[in-house]
């Protein structure tokens, strides 16, 4: 934590945004740590969930930025264990969702999260184009984006042999509808390129 004075913002803090847009009160968190205690990936995170909650609570600019640049938000697997056990019934995964989205929009995503983001993008691209997930296309796309060319190549023959990897995408009829949905959401501000 920085020892400099908190630069608390009166308006437009992340905490306020999360309350307004997601109806989740981060202020309710009393830092019991039960989320961090039960989080299956806490030990791999740079800040455990309870610390992320605290950072957002400070409404301090430096803290907010650290949260948005954290690896934690990308490692969260949305398993909902924290929310299920949170004594204050705070939707912590919802907070993580929000931070991820903001982090991505602001171009602040942790560089180490590139693989994860590449996968999400490849996944969404696949359904944007076809309406359904095209697994082979997804994997090829992901490899191109992440340069993980060698990863899982040994799996492919097994999948093919077991009839698990289709060679052709399934195209749905409402593709225009899908493109529309993407244009109005994810691609609204130029976003995904």
């Amino acid at each position: 934590m920085s020892s400099v004075q908190h630069q608390v913002q009166k308006k437009g803090s992340l905490m306020e945004e999360i309350l307004d847009s997601r109806e989740i009160s981060v202020q309710k968190c009393y830092q019991c740590g039960k989320c961090s205690a039960g989080c299956p990936v806490a030990e791999d995170m740079d800040y455990p969930p309870s610390v992320i909650m605290r950072m957002v609570q400070t409404e301090d600019k430096a803290m907010e930025e650290a949260a948005l640049r954290s690896m934690t938000i990308w490692l969260c697997v949305t398993c909902e264990t924290c929310a299920a056990r949170c004594p204050m019934e705070i939707d912590i995964p919802g907070v993580m969702d929000y931070l991820r989205q903001r982090s991505y929009e602001k171009g602040m995503a942790n560089p180490k999260a590139n693989h994860i983001i590449s996968f999400h993008k490849a996944f969404l691209d696949s359904i944007d184009y076809t309406g359904r997930l095209y697994e082979l296309g997804l994997i090829v796309d992901y490899k191109m984006r992440s340069f993980q060319l060698q990863q899982d190549v040994d799996l492919a023959p097994g999948m093919i042999a077991r009839g698990k990897l289709g060679f052709f995408p399934e195209l749905i009829k409402g593709r225009k509808n899908m493109t529309d949905i993407f244009r109005k959401t994810l691609h609204k501000k130029g976003g995904l390129k």
Binding site: S21, R22, V77, T78, D97, Y98, R100, Q101, Y104, F119, H120, K121, F123, L124, S126, I127, G131, R132, L133, I172, G174, M178, I181, F182, K184, T185, L186, G191, L192
Partner: peptide, 16 residues
């Protein structure tokens, strides 16, 4: 039917 968006969608965009 279309894909539900799975983890990727709610990781990236709420409305989507």
């Amino acid at each position: 039917w279309n894909c539900c968006g799975a983890t990727a969608a709610h990781n990236m965009n709420k409305e989507l």
